Simulated scan of single mutants.
Amino acid sequence: MKKFFERFIKQPKWHNLRSTTPISEVFALDRGTPIDRIYIEHFLESNKDCIKGTLCEIGENSYSKKYAIGTASFEILHFTNDNKNATIIGDLTDLLTLPENKIDCFILTQTLNFIYDFKSAIHGLHYMLSSGGTALVTVSGISQISRYDMDRWGDYWRFTDLSIKKAFIEVFGENNVEVETYGNVLSSIAFLEGISAEELTTEELFYKDQNYQIIITLRAKKQ
Rank of each mutant, 00 (worst) to 15 (best):
F114W: 04
R7F: 09
F4N: 12
S62I: 14
P12F: 11
Q11P: 03
T111G: 04
F27M: 02
N113M: 05
K3F: 12
L98D: 03
D36N: 09
G194M: 04
E203H: 07
E203G: 02
F114E: 11
I103K: 00
Q110N: 12
R147Y: 15
R7M: 14
L55I: 13
M150F: 15
T87I: 09
S188V: 06
E193C: 07
R219V: 12
S19F: 07
I142C: 04
E174A: 11
N16G: 13
F8G: 02
L129T: 00
E170I: 01
K166E: 14
T93D: 02
Q144A: 11
S146I: 03
L205S: 03
A86M: 10
E178H: 09
W153F: 15
G124M: 01
T80Q: 09
L29H: 13
S131G: 00
E75C: 07
P34R: 08
L17Q: 15
T97F: 11
H42E: 13
A86N: 07
L112I: 11
S188M: 09
S64E: 10
E25H: 12
L192R: 05
S196N: 04
Q213R: 07
S140V: 00
L125W: 02
L17G: 14
I103T: 01
E60K: 13
A68G: 03
E60V: 14
P99L: 09
D161N: 10
R158Y: 09
D209F: 08
E170C: 05
I103G: 01
F8D: 07
Q11I: 15
R7K: 15
R158S: 04
I195N: 04
F172H: 01
Y148C: 06
C50H: 04
K10R: 12
A121D: 04
M128C: 09
H123S: 14
K65H: 09
N85S: 15
I216Q: 00
I107Y: 00
N211A: 11
H78G: 05
L129N: 00
L98V: 09
E60R: 13
N175W: 03
R147D: 11
V177G: 04
N47C: 14
K102E: 06
S131C: 04
D36A: 02
C50F: 11
I23L: 14
K84Y: 08
S143D: 11
R147Q: 13
S196Q: 04
H126F: 08
I216W: 03
V137P: 03
I40F: 03
S146K: 05
K13N: 15
G132R: 04
L186K: 15
I122T: 10
K208Y: 07
G32V: 05
Y39A: 00
L112T: 11
H126S: 07
F172I: 07
I214M: 04
M128G: 02
W153V: 15
A220G: 08
K10D: 12
G183E: 03
Q213P: 03
D104F: 09
S143K: 12
E60P: 00
T54N: 02
F4G: 08
T93Q: 06
D94Q: 13
I216F: 01
I214V: 02
I215H: 00
W153G: 13
E25S: 13
T93L: 07
L129E: 03
I89G: 02
N211K: 15
Y182P: 00
E198L: 08
K222L: 05
T138C: 01
